[in-house]
Design a protein around this nucleic acid. Sequence first.
DNA 1: ATGCCAATCTTTGTATACAAATAGAGAAAC
DNA 2: GTTTCTCTATTTGTATACAAAGATTGGCAT
Lengths: 217, 217
Amino acid sequence: MAKIATTVYEQIRTAILNGELSNSERLVEEDLAVSLGISRTPVREALRRLAAEGLVDVSPNRGARVAEWDVHDLREIFDLRSILESHACELATPRASAAEIEFLENICTEMEELARTDLSSETRLPALAAKNRIFHSKIIEMSNSTRLGLLIETLIHVPIVMQTYKVYSPDALARSLRHHREIVNAMKAGDEVWASSVMRAHVLAAREEILGQGQTE
Amino acid sequence: MAKIATTVYEQIRTAILNGELSNSERLVEEDLAVSLGISRTPVREALRRLAAEGLVDVSPNRGARVAEWDVHDLREIFDLRSILESHACELATPRASAAEIEFLENICTEMEELARTDLSSETRLPALAAKNRIFHSKIIEMSNSTRLGLLIETLIHVPIVMQTYKVYSPDALARSLRHHREIVNAMKAGDEVWASSVMRAHVLAAREEILGQGQTE
DNA sequence: ATGCCAATCTTTGTATACAAATAGAGAAAC
DNA sequence: GTTTCTCTATTTGTATACAAAGATTGGCAT
């Protein structure tokens, strides 16, 4: 059996990512420990790990709270993602196998089908968001750069917690899906400049959709 | 007084960065604890933090060793630094104050003076490396992007541990210093494209100096 | 002598106990 | 009523104790 600390780390982590813990909620070691039926030691270890990942903030002698982000954080994150994910595309393109391209195309198709379903469906947006994450993760994996993957991973969970996908307009969603298709086409053509440019545009478009334009600070 | 865990974290950290701990050396919690006159608990916390930072590797039930890197790691790191640090330049240029420009110019001058001193001096290279780090850190700080700084920081300590600066030829060193000057000039001119391009070239040149050219894998 | 297995010894993982620090409630002063 | 101060109650930080998992050494068989 895996270590308790790892298990509880994953539990708290997914709880935060699913938004089950309200923003800036205090995470008291003892409380978590008794509610999970374990001692404080592994809870403490889990919280420190989450802090290193940026999902919780800990102040000395004051304990941990689930982290909070503002518009400025989001702007920084999308800026960096636009750079790093486009670089991932650049690295992935010359390495892409036919099977990998097909995998990406299938996700595109699935997302397009999901987008055509009933707009009022509550599960539609989370499902799209999940597929979207798979699409991006796949390209990062294809880039074959461990560290690039790690860097992007630390950036990605903030938008997840904030559930930024909820603000997507139908137009923006359609554009996003066209971007995905275009990225795959560019990769299929072996054109890494094209692919990385579309990816950069894709992430920057998402930034503007979520943050609105203009605000400098 | 600061927390013991933080103190010991910093102690182990600087020990690793200074190369005082040999590569892949085991870090036994109990041993460290008694040698520092404390209990295992804060040592353990420090080691986990270092693991999150990538400076040590921990395997379940097997403990921690100081991390090890190979040529492939270095290649990834310099690739990413070339992108991220040039982005830092781009952000920093329109924000740069006269005082900050002057600060950077002073570092350039100090490094040039150091470079002119006796080649055989043992302390010359470490001193140059230290100034070099200050130069780069200053620009990152000027970029005013917390996260960008954090990302670069996790990349930077690997070359430090490996003491890559030791392989610099006199030619490479001279070029490196000219790059620094040119970066500052570009920033002074308010030309962020120029500045970021030189920075990118600067880091890529360092990569080739350290790794040699050609090897793809 | 060499390879393999078992017992032991070391080291990590978790629980508990205690000390130190902070937050919060309540009382006193204004 | 409001502010501030003190005392108490919570909560974190560290130490220690114990259990479980690995590493190691010695003996046994071949």
